[in-house]
Amino acid sequence: MGDVTRSRKKVTQRFLERTFRGRPMGIGSYVWMFQRLTGLVLAFYLGLHLLVLGSALKGGASFNQVMAMLETPWIKVLETALVWVALFHTANGIRLVLLDLVPSLNQRSLAYGALVVTIVLGAMGTSFMW
């Protein structure tokens, strides 16, 4: 009995199903998913950053070339997106640390607070960059 097992739904599948069938998951799951995605983006960016730095430091000509490439609007749009991603990752990371230190805090309001902090600081950063 019980040896025939149904393959368990993966987290992502369950997440998408619930999200698009009108019975969404709690905000904790959403910020966790975003935390994971932004973490992947930041890890990818770290490699890219080292690559660009390495190619820029080969000499004067290459430095000018890379700097001109970084001035293009597409790169600027990506940089702005990176600011938002890093801000959200930081704010939610602080929320997680707070929850570890003071478990009785309300995680839902903390999550909304992290989103508000992200939006305010992101808007400031965007207006500063453009």
């Binding site: 998951m25 709690g26 904790g28 799951s29 966790w32 997680l96 929850l99 995680q107 839902r108």
Partner: peptide, 9 residues
């Protein structure tokens, strides 16, 4: 634990 609070939901 990933602090998603689905158990509480």
């Amino acid at each position: 634990c990933i602090n998603c609070y689905e158990c509480a939901n």
